[in-house]
Design a protein around this nucleic acid. Structure first.
Lengths: 153, 153
DNA sequence: CATAAACTACACTAAGTCAATAGAGATTTT
DNA sequence: AAAATCTCTATTGACTTAGTGTAGTTTATG
């Protein structure tokens, strides 16, 4: 039931790009340093995200990456699906990555019915959440942490 | 975000054992045939479940496996956790398999907060569901399928 | 126009996981 | 004693993961 490091890194990178959405581009090295992600590995991931139409890049000295669409329009579900495949715990309940399973009768499979519930729960969270939500949360968590100090003065 | 075949096979085997809970033991071969699970692989899995205290076994000619506890007391969460580890998508939000992640500040990590929601959603489903529920569903799905034919007559 | 920062592309690898398979044995009923 | 069954450890082949390596191409800037 795990997300790979690849997927986690992708979300972390998108968060950075989302927080600096107004800026023209962010160099890969800056993301790599901020988020403790190996630079070369991050390159691959951002390239994937580029082919998915999630980010776009500018080459050369002042180059880097930026979101290809507004943060509100990039759902976490899309990103994860592109990088890792199905969100469903078993592929026989996946909508876009369906594969028949080895059980004797899929239509009467009790496990399938349970897994469908899990799938729906996960998808309903990930489909709604966007990079913009991620940014909002990040800013909120920053405030919560900084807040008490401000009130002390 | 996937469950391995190992975990799926375990659930399918437990369903069979649950449906025949009254019987003394079910031989491994019978489970293997009913559910299309390679016998030798199933042996390993049932052995794991035995060391987890979920099933118990009887050796010899009329041997086999049975549930070590009543079906209502075996939650799917317990089973999966024992076979596959954490239910959480990233280990920094897991309660029993916690591991620090590489992000700069865990307490202010927006991705973490999202993943915690996903974890909670999955756990709330899997913690409540037991092998007994699985059996009830299986019986219900059997009826739904057979029902319409009966009414035709 | 040279240079250096940055992206691009493709290949490679070490380590680990997954899904079995193999072989040798231990137990127990008949 | 025989046959069916579980027990335990090891091994294997395919695949995935998380990177590294090498060799470029592009472009702003001094």
């Amino acid at each position: 039931m795990k997300l790979s490091l690849r997927g986690e890194y992708a979300l972390r990178a998108l968060l950075v790009l989302g927080l600096h959405y107004k800026q023209p581009v962010i160099p890969i090295q800056s993301i790599s340093q901020q988020q403790n992600i190996p630079k070369r590995f991050l390159e691959q991931i951002l390239n994937d995200l580029k082919s998915a139409g999630v980010v776009e890049s500018k080459r050369g000295v002042a180059g880097g990456y930026r979101l290809a669409r507004p943060p509100e329009e990039i759902s976490l579900a899309t990103v994860i699906r592109h990088l890792e495949g199905a969100l469903a715990p078993v592929s026989c309940v996946s909508e876009r990555f369906y594969e028949k399973c080895s059980c004797p009768d899929e239509s009467r499979c009790a496990i399938r019915s349970v897994m469908k519930e899990v799938r729906d729960a996960v998808v309903s969270i990930m489909d709604k959440l966007t990079v913009a939500d991620l940014c909002a949360r990040a800013r909120r968590l920053q405030e919560v942490h900084a807040g008490p100090l401000d009130f002390m003065i």
